[in-house]
Simulated assay, not measured.
Amino acid sequence: MEISGIISAIVIGIVIGILGRLVVPGRQRIGILLTILVGIVAALIGSAIAGAFDVADTNGVDWIEWLIQIGLAALGVAALDRTRARR
């Protein structure tokens, strides 16, 4: 992966993490850095899943890929919030 790919994954991960956090109802007890990390991981995994189902390369915006990534980010934020709430 080239440096431009890494930078774009980080930027997209930030957006995905924030959108995933907005989807989860209520107050989350995780910091912004964990949200960004969850977003980056969700963006990478979501891209792989979308590529496996051949919905990643379309003409225009890849809405299905974005929905998969946001869903994964929301799951990640909710999971981290629950582990933080138990402490």
Rank of each mutant, 00 (worst) to 15 (best):
I3E: 12
V77M: 11
A74F: 06
M1Y: 11
I6Y: 07
L19Y: 11
L72W: 05
S8G: 09
I64T: 14
L75A: 15
L72T: 05
A74S: 10
L72H: 07
V11D: 06
L67T: 14
R29I: 08
T35W: 01
I40R: 04
L67V: 14
D57W: 08
G5P: 02
A85S: 10
G71Y: 04
A42D: 02
D54R: 03
P25F: 09
L22K: 12
V24N: 06
R21W: 14
L44I: 15
I7C: 07
I36Y: 05
S47L: 13
P25K: 12
I30E: 00
Q69L: 00
I3V: 15
L44Y: 11
A78T: 08
L33E: 08
S8H: 03
G17N: 05
R84F: 09
I40D: 02
E2Y: 10
V15L: 06
L37W: 00
L37N: 00
S4V: 14
V55W: 01
T58E: 02
T35L: 02
I36Q: 00
G20E: 02
S4R: 14
R29D: 13
N59I: 09
W66C: 00
I32G: 03
I12T: 12
L80P: 12
A48F: 12
F53K: 01
L19E: 07
G31N: 10
V38W: 00
G26P: 04
G39D: 01
V23H: 03
T83K: 15
L22P: 04
A48V: 14
I68G: 03
N59T: 09
L37C: 00
N59A: 13
R84W: 09
D62H: 12
I32Y: 08
L67I: 14
I6V: 14
V77C: 13
G13D: 08
A9F: 13
I49K: 05
W66I: 12
L37Q: 00
V11M: 12
D57R: 09
V41L: 10
G17P: 12
I40P: 05
A52D: 06
A48N: 10
A78S: 14
I64M: 09
A48P: 01
P25V: 10
G51H: 03
G20F: 01
